[in-house]
Amino acid sequence: MTSPLESVALFHLGPVPVTAAVLVTWGIMLALALGGFFLTRRLSLRPTRVQALLETVVETLDGQIEETMRVPAAAYRPFVGTLFLYILTANWSSLIPGVEPPTAKLETDAALALLVFIAVIVFGIRAGGVRGYLASFAAPNPIMIPLNFIENITRTFSLLVRLFGNVMSGVFVIGIVLSLAGLLVPIPLMALDLLTGAVQAYIFAVLAMVFIAEAVGEAEHRPSQQRKDP
């Protein structure tokens, strides 16, 4: 049994090692992209059951974004929705025998956390400009600038560690139980892992929304407050 903290390259593309997590991610990308393409190819105003289900997903996601971020959902729907779908699919990919979820690898979770970190900056700048975004670090007063900066870094790490710890531990426990007790014993643990995977995907997406909303809100309000203060 290999350590879950290690990534083993399956093959190399030039200097780039391609690990199992990358390979599974490509598979997930292919499945989600093709699935999305084929499912939305024949949309109509009189929806089928599948279309109605997909629209329900979209409307639920929009409602969640608007409820959490207090802004129109359209600009954030692709990022937040794709994060949720990818993490959920990646977590549940452990149901396929021989497939290890990419989210059980540190690099994948780090990449997701890095994307959230970058998204916070991009959406913050888009909402209030560079000055507005930078000024948001001085909220509620300039003394908080170092703390806010550290908070941005640490909460990104918390995202990374939370997702990695939960998924990796689930996979690790199932691996240990499977090696000790046989074929059917880990099934309840796998069911629990499904629940954990869904909850972790939801938590990751909600936290990403909260971080982005905080940056957007601060960036939008900060310049006006500065203008009001003489």
Partner: peptide, 18 residues
């Protein structure tokens, strides 16, 4: 690679799904 992959997935799903 994973960061790029997820970015590409975000674009793909934004274009063909959302």
């Amino acid at each position: 690679l994973q960061a790029v992959n997820v970015t590409v997935l975000i674009w793909l799903l934004a274009r063909f799904f959302w």
